[in-house]
C-alpha cells in the first residue's frame, strides 16, 4: 500500500520491529474523542497458514497492536505493557480480505487499563479480544504513541 492510496484519515502505525516486518497496519487518526479506535490491515500470502487462512498469530498480533494503541491514547505520557490478552478465533480470513478493527477502553484505574476490541471482515467478526494492560511508568521523550 502506498501513501497515495491510504484511506482518508488513516496513517500507518509506527513502523518499528515486528510492526514493520508484518506490513502496514493503518490507524484512523481522524476519529473524534470518545469514539472507538479504528484500524485496517490487508493480509498477504506470507501471513497465511497451511489451510490458506490468515495465521492466528497474525490476527492476535493485530489485536495486541490495536488494543495497545487504544490503551496508550487513554494514558497520555505514560507507558503500559500487555499483562494478559484473551483472543477468540471466531471465523477464518482469506488472503487479500480487508480486516477492520475497533477497540475501546472498558475501564482505567491508576495501575491497570481494561480494553477490548474486535476484528471484522465485511462487517462480520473474525476475532474478539480483551486484555489487561499494566501501567509501568512514564513514556520516554519522543517515543511513539
Amino acid at each position: 500500500m502506498t501513501r497515495e492510496n491510504l484511506p482518508a484519515g488513516f496513517q500507518p502505525v509506527v513502523p518499528v520491529g515486528f510492526n514493520a516486518y508484518i506490513g502496514p497496519i493503518l490507524r484512523d487518526l481522524s476519529r473524534k474523542a470518545g469514539e472507538a479506535g479504528r484500524f485496517r490491515f490487508q493480509p498477504q500470502a506470507h501471513h497465511l497458514n497451511a489451510g490458506h487462512n490468515v495465521h492466528g498469530g497474525l490476527l492476535m498480533t493485530l489485536c495486541d497492536i490495536m488494543l495497545g494503541y487504544t490503551v496508550h491514547e487513554a494514558i497520555p505520557g505514560k507507558l503500559a505493557t500487555t499483562a494478559t490478552l484473551n483472543t477468540d478465533f471466531v471465523a477464518g480470513v482469506r488472503e487479500g480480505e480487508l480486516i477492520e478493527g475497533r477497540a475501546e477502553v472498558t475501564r482505567l484505574t491508576r495501575s491497570l487499563v481494561f480494553v477490548s476490541g474486535a476484528l471484522s471482515v465485511a462487517g462480520k467478526p473474525v476475532m474478539t479480544a480483551s486484555g489487561i494492560w499494566k501501567i509501568i511508568g512514564d513514556r520516554k521523550e519522543g517515543a511513539p504513541a
Binding site: G17, F18, H55, L58, M60, D64
Partner: peptide, 22 residues
C-alpha cells in the same frame, strides 16, 4: 532478533503469541 521487537525495544507480544500458537 531485530525483526521481533516492539517500539519499547522488547519482544513484541504478537510475535510471542505467534510462537505460542505455532
Amino acid at each position: 532478533d531485530e525483526r521481533h521487537i516492539n517500539a519499547n525495544g522488547v519482544c513484541h507480544g504478537g510475535m510471542l503469541m505467534t510462537f505460542v500458537d505455532a
